Simulated scan of single mutants.
Amino acid sequence: MVLERIQRENDIQKIAKEDLPVLAQEIREFLVEKISRTGGHLASNLGVVELTMAMHLCFHLPEDKIIWDVGHQSYTHKILTGRREGFDELRKYGGMSGFPKRKESQCDAFNTGHSSTSISAGLGYVEARDIRGEDYHVISVIGDGALTGGMAFEALNNASHLEKNFIIVLNDNQMSISQNVGGMSRYLDGIRTADAYTNLKKGLEKAIRKIPSGGDQILSHLRKTKSSIKQLFVPGMFFEDMGITYLGPVDGHNLKELIRAFREAKKVKGPVLLHVLTKKGKGYLPAEKEPSRFHGTEPFDIRSGKPLK
């Protein structure tokens, strides 16, 4: 098993590229098997397997800080930081928490359990890093449901004036516990369905790669063109208008695309929001069909998906 090679943080970086899809599959099988016995948050964790793997491939823990919003989707993160054995006692007294806990691991940067806090917590790390003259990456992961919270908007407002690297990952699965509603949900729907912009952007990128030389002047024009295209095809461009570089949307189950996007995000000076599209319950059909029921589930029969009691 590829999964058995993961004994501690950063071990995933030693796994061959061709074995990474196998690792993703084994993680999903492991989560379904363990949570079917203990209960826990299943659908949300199945949805972030590749996203979590990409972060652990692109960043070095515990030096870099990954901060999870709510934290109920951090099970793959726990597996990749050497806590696989703890899943037999998941959420039991004296056992492993279902949320990030600093006392469990140095790789858990922030204790959490409530929504809309990760961007604010990330800002705290960014300010502390800069005051102390340290050099590491801060990645705050927030779901589209949690992004509707007031604290998240306050943090976005404060982040917009930063001049140093800060990465916000918007994990967009179109749900919180149940289906999302409201203005932000409608806005993100518009971005998801902006195929014209996405296709045109890909075409521009291909054309740019064919240019033998260009210099700063051409790059400046391209940046202005890119901004104009976004304004044309994606009305509002809420994040860009706030001064936060927007990247995406990216397929949250395509590891190659995710790694490329994170490498790009690391180069950005200032705050950057990476918009990642994921599917709750990915890889386990009952959870894909009923993501709300498998958001937080009791022990269940794996074959049917029905509760044992």
Rank of each mutant, 00 (worst) to 15 (best):
101 K>C: 07
101 K>L: 08
102 R>H: 08
102 R>K: 15
102 R>G: 04
103 K>N: 03
104 E>Y: 01
104 E>M: 04
104 E>P: 07
105 S>W: 00
106 Q>I: 00
106 Q>G: 11
107 C>G: 00
107 C>S: 11
107 C>A: 09
108 D>G: 04
109 A>W: 02
110 F>T: 04
110 F>N: 02
111 N>K: 02
111 N>L: 01
111 N>E: 10
112 T>F: 00
114 H>E: 02
114 H>V: 03
114 H>F: 02
114 H>S: 12
115 S>L: 15
116 S>V: 10
116 S>D: 12
117 T>W: 03
117 T>Q: 07
117 T>G: 10
118 S>P: 04
119 I>E: 03
122 G>Q: 07
123 L>N: 08
123 L>E: 13
124 G>Q: 00
124 G>Y: 01
125 Y>V: 01
125 Y>N: 07
126 V>Q: 10
127 E>D: 08
127 E>R: 12
128 A>S: 13
128 A>H: 10
128 A>K: 07
130 D>C: 01
130 D>Y: 03
130 D>K: 14
130 D>W: 07
131 I>R: 14
131 I>K: 14
132 R>M: 14
132 R>K: 15
132 R>E: 06
133 G>M: 13
135 D>W: 04
135 D>P: 09
136 Y>K: 10
136 Y>V: 13
137 H>A: 12
137 H>Y: 15
137 H>F: 13
138 V>Q: 07
138 V>H: 05
138 V>L: 07
139 I>C: 05
141 V>R: 02
141 V>C: 10
141 V>W: 01
142 I>N: 06
142 I>E: 02
142 I>V: 15
142 I>W: 02
142 I>A: 05
143 G>P: 09
144 D>P: 06
144 D>S: 09
144 D>H: 09
144 D>F: 09
144 D>V: 08
144 D>I: 05
144 D>M: 06
145 G>W: 11
145 G>Q: 03
145 G>A: 14
146 A>Q: 00
146 A>D: 12
146 A>M: 04
148 T>A: 13
149 G>A: 15
151 M>H: 06
151 M>T: 12
152 A>L: 08
153 F>V: 02
154 E>I: 05
154 E>C: 05
156 L>V: 09
157 N>S: 10
157 N>I: 08
158 N>T: 10
158 N>C: 01
159 A>E: 03
160 S>F: 02
160 S>C: 13
163 E>S: 15
163 E>D: 15
164 K>T: 15
164 K>D: 14
164 K>C: 13
165 N>M: 05
166 F>P: 11
167 I>P: 06
167 I>T: 14
167 I>K: 11
168 I>F: 03
168 I>E: 06
170 L>S: 00
170 L>E: 05
171 N>S: 12
171 N>A: 11
172 D>V: 02
174 Q>P: 00
174 Q>R: 14
174 Q>G: 00
174 Q>Y: 01
174 Q>L: 13
175 M>S: 04
175 M>K: 04
175 M>C: 09
